[in-house]
Every structure is written in C-alpha cells, then in structure tokens.
Amino acid sequence: MIQLHKVSVQYGSFTALHSTTLAFVPGQFTVLLGASGAGKSTLLRSLNLLARPSAGHITVDGVGELDHAGRVHEHRKRTGMIFQQHQLIARQSVLANVLLGRIGYHPAWRTMFPLPYGERRIALECLERVGLLHKALERVDCLSGGQQQRVGIARALAQQPRLMLADEPVASLDPASSRQVLAQLKRFCHEDGITIVVSLHQVDLACEYADRIIGLSHGHVVFDSTPDALTPVQAAALYEQKTAPSEAPDHQAKPIEPKATFVQLATAKEPA
C-alpha cells in the first residue's frame, strides 16, 4: 500500500532516520518499537510527510510517488492520524470533533457552513464503532482520557482512511484503556483492510496486538518480523536493558453505557 525506498530524514547535521526501505500492506497492524530517540516518530511521520525525507522517495498505491503537493494532499486526505495528546478541540462536542475528519473532502469555503446530514451520519457511524455514540453531543473536555483517545480514533475513521498512523496513542492511558484502544485499532485494521502503523514503548502490548513489529535503534531498523520472533534478548537490546521489560497485568475494560439512536443525534442541536 505504501513503500519507502532508501528514505532518510535529517535535521541539520543530525540523522533521525538512516536510509530505510520498507513496505506496508493493507490490513496489517504494525508496531514500531524502540527507546526514545530511536526514530519511531520520525519513521511514522515520514509516512504522511509530516517529516520530510532528506533522501529517498515514498510511493503510495493509487497515488504514485509523493513528489508534489497534489499527490501529498490526496494521500493525506486518506491518512488518519492519532496523537498521544489527542489534539481535540476541548470546548466542542464529540460529534464536532469527529466531523473534522471529513474536512479534507470539501473546499476551504465549505468549512464556513455546517456539513450536510450525510457527513454527520458518517461521523455518527464512526462514534458507534468506538462505543461512544451516546456521548456524541457532550463536550470533549467532559470525557476521560481513554474516551478522548477513542474520539481521536473515530475522527481518523471518519476520513475513511487507507492508512492510519498512531504516535504512542496509549502513553497517557491506564492499562485497561490502553488495551481497549489497541484492540479497537486492530479490529478496524482487519475489518476494513486499513494499513495501521503504531509507535509504542510497551513490548508486552506490541507482542499482544501486532501482526508485525519493526524495532528501531539510533535511527536504524534492527528488527522486522512477527511478534513471536522477538526474543527477550532482542527486546531488551532495543531499550539497551539487561533484561526485557515484564508484562503489565491484564485488565478488563469498563462496560460501555447505553447508546442513543442515529435519528436522535443527527437531528439534535450541539451544545453552545
């Protein structure tokens, strides 16, 4: 779906990502592992050119080489991004935040007016998929951290993406919320055939949810295989530790509250 060919990223004299050739396929859940500064975020952000390659090129199926603004825009329109700190508009409703995922499909002037009913329905369907339809009209700042991250996932889903990128999406979440978020991402990856790439620090979560693990160290790819191929020694080496990190305890996610209907939400007024 997307290929990097000898891509490197430099910031001045510092090389954040050395020459890297990788391919990512549809329906595959890939986790990037490595210590802070290993190059995970740089590699992740190079996939939608938030980090511009200093050398090499990136090719996207159906778009071509990302060598000019028109192709970059087309690629970003179908690339969902999930951030560690959520990047939501706190005083807006959950529905309004998810609708931002549809903005790329409209000209700039269209954002001055409410989006049509069809777009609201797409947003509501995405909220239902993450179990937050009943929260659609609440302000985002009234939600828990785990719920806010699921709003971010719904916003990314609203783009109807072919590629979804998540930069340490569970770093600020408790274990139960972390597993709920990763389980939902993996489910959408397999159900929708989306290419999903996630950066994580937690080796146990990577081994539990990933189809593929790419390990980075000092800007180099040093491991690329399935989770069962990652040995404790290799995992420890990624973090330059003597022993591999122990697994976090398992937790059960909290039950989801009763849901509202599409008709009620699509026709309701949002809070001021």
Rank of each mutant, 00 (worst) to 15 (best):
residue 183 A to S: 12
residue 155 R to L: 12
residue 209 Y to P: 02
residue 228 D to C: 11
residue 186 K to V: 02
residue 256 I to K: 13
residue 235 A to K: 10
residue 241 Q to K: 15
residue 181 V to P: 06
residue 156 A to H: 13
residue 187 R to A: 14
residue 236 A to T: 03
residue 148 Q to N: 02
residue 233 V to F: 09
residue 212 R to K: 10
residue 226 T to L: 06
residue 153 I to P: 00
residue 227 P to L: 08
residue 170 V to Q: 05
residue 219 G to T: 11
residue 219 G to C: 10
residue 268 A to V: 00
residue 151 V to I: 12
residue 233 V to H: 14
residue 240 E to I: 04
residue 241 Q to R: 15
residue 213 I to H: 00
residue 171 A to D: 08
residue 256 I to L: 12
residue 152 G to Q: 02
residue 168 E to S: 01
residue 235 A to F: 08
residue 260 A to H: 15
residue 263 V to W: 09
residue 223 F to I: 05
residue 266 A to L: 12
residue 223 F to R: 07
residue 263 V to D: 14
residue 180 Q to I: 00
residue 261 T to K: 08
residue 246 S to E: 14
residue 232 P to Q: 04
residue 177 S to A: 13
residue 268 A to Y: 13
residue 260 A to F: 10
residue 193 G to N: 10
residue 177 S to C: 01
residue 230 L to T: 00
residue 266 A to Q: 14
residue 160 Q to G: 07
residue 240 E to C: 13
residue 250 D to P: 03
residue 173 L to N: 08
residue 210 A to R: 06
residue 152 G to V: 06
residue 198 V to K: 05
residue 248 A to R: 15
residue 264 Q to L: 09
residue 172 S to Y: 09
residue 162 R to T: 12
residue 215 G to Q: 01
residue 271 P to Q: 05
residue 219 G to Q: 12
residue 265 L to G: 00
residue 178 S to M: 02
residue 201 H to V: 05
residue 188 F to N: 05
residue 175 P to K: 07
residue 156 A to K: 13
residue 233 V to E: 15
residue 168 E to K: 03
residue 197 V to S: 00
residue 173 L to H: 01
residue 156 A to D: 11
residue 250 D to E: 12
residue 199 S to V: 04
residue 198 V to L: 04
residue 212 R to D: 09
residue 266 A to H: 09
residue 166 A to T: 08
residue 270 E to T: 11
residue 190 H to T: 04
residue 245 P to W: 11
residue 153 I to C: 00
residue 259 K to W: 11
residue 211 D to F: 09
residue 264 Q to G: 02
residue 183 A to D: 11
residue 261 T to R: 12
residue 148 Q to E: 09
residue 201 H to W: 10
residue 170 V to E: 01
residue 257 E to H: 09
residue 174 D to M: 03
residue 229 A to F: 03
residue 200 L to H: 01
residue 208 E to H: 12
residue 190 H to D: 06
residue 164 M to V: 13
residue 250 D to N: 12
residue 165 L to D: 00
residue 231 T to G: 05
residue 155 R to Y: 11
residue 269 K to L: 13
residue 267 T to Q: 13
residue 171 A to S: 15
residue 158 A to H: 10
residue 215 G to F: 05
residue 175 P to L: 08
residue 178 S to K: 05
residue 199 S to I: 01
residue 176 A to I: 05
residue 178 S to C: 02
residue 201 H to S: 01
residue 266 A to M: 14
residue 219 G to L: 10
residue 174 D to S: 07
residue 242 K to M: 13
residue 264 Q to K: 14
residue 263 V to G: 00
residue 169 P to K: 07
residue 165 L to Y: 01
residue 218 H to I: 00
residue 171 A to W: 07
residue 229 A to M: 09
residue 210 A to F: 04
residue 215 G to W: 04
residue 204 D to G: 00
residue 203 V to L: 06
residue 266 A to C: 09
residue 229 A to D: 12
residue 197 V to Q: 07
residue 213 I to V: 07
residue 177 S to K: 05
residue 160 Q to F: 03
